[in-house]
Design a protein around this nucleic acid. Structure first.
Lengths: 125, 125
DNA sequence: CAGGATCCAAAATGATACTG
DNA sequence: CAGTATCATTTTGGATCCTG
């Protein structure tokens, strides 16, 4: 989808070029916990299709964010692991997680709805 | 594009729901510097079309990230200002900017290309 | 199990023209 | 100036079927 080099001058744009994709951020988020197999990722992320997940993983591999290891077994096994560069995005994800909680809390105040109990904002991913 | 309520349980996903859009992040980034007029934003961001910019601004207004103020003048003037909630995203943008610089630096090492001089990584947006 | 290959539907974006 | 409206196009995503 995108090719290396040709990075925008603005650092924020550079970051966006690599992870503006919704799925990529979620993939990063899940892989922060450690190496995962393709199937695990797919199940955890849920709504994504295999085609899209594969495409995103390939992009991220090309960007140097993660590595793909294929085991010569039957049935096949493929594991994805973040590189140091990928792990270095943790502060960004942490910031997003922190803000997300904040927003959920703010949002829970206003509505007259029965949105959820307060502790739901602590749900895992 | 998206409607309030119905937020994902995962905080990271919640954040993505609001700003996964490439343009939204850039808009936030520019508005962090202060109130701007529509035309200013458009010029600064550059590649975006007026239609897309308008749509994104409306979304963000609906999400409570910014306010839109119309002056009853001729020619018309419309200013966009971040709300407290919008400004609270600064840590996220800062984290992205920091990582972007890091990636630019990493990327500048490997290539055999004449990509740019080191100080270019400090360019403004 | 982990995809590659296809075909198709849906959504985002671009280009223009027009207006209060 | 800051949009809205419309049309054409590009991108993206979903659904399937197939295979090492």
């Amino acid at each position: 989808m995108l090719y290396r080099k040709e990075l925008p001058a603005c650092p924020v744009e550079t970051t966006l070029t690599l992870i503006s994709d919704r799925w990529k951020v979620l993939i990063l988020n899940h892989l922060m916990a450690g190496t995962k197999r393709f199937g695990e990722l797919k199940k955890e992320i849920g709504k994504v299709t295999q085609k899209v997940l594969t495409a995103n993983l390939r992009d991220m591999e090309a960007s140097g964010l993660l590595t793909r290891k294929v085991y010569a077994e039957v049935p096949p096994r493929v594991e994805y692991t973040l590189t140091d560069l990928g792990r270095s995005l943790k502060p960004v994800l942490d910031a997003m997680a922190a803000w997300g909680k904040h927003y959920q809390a703010e949002n829970a105040k206003l509505p007259s709805a029965e949105t959820a109990s307060a502790d739901d904002s602590q749900k895992a991913c």
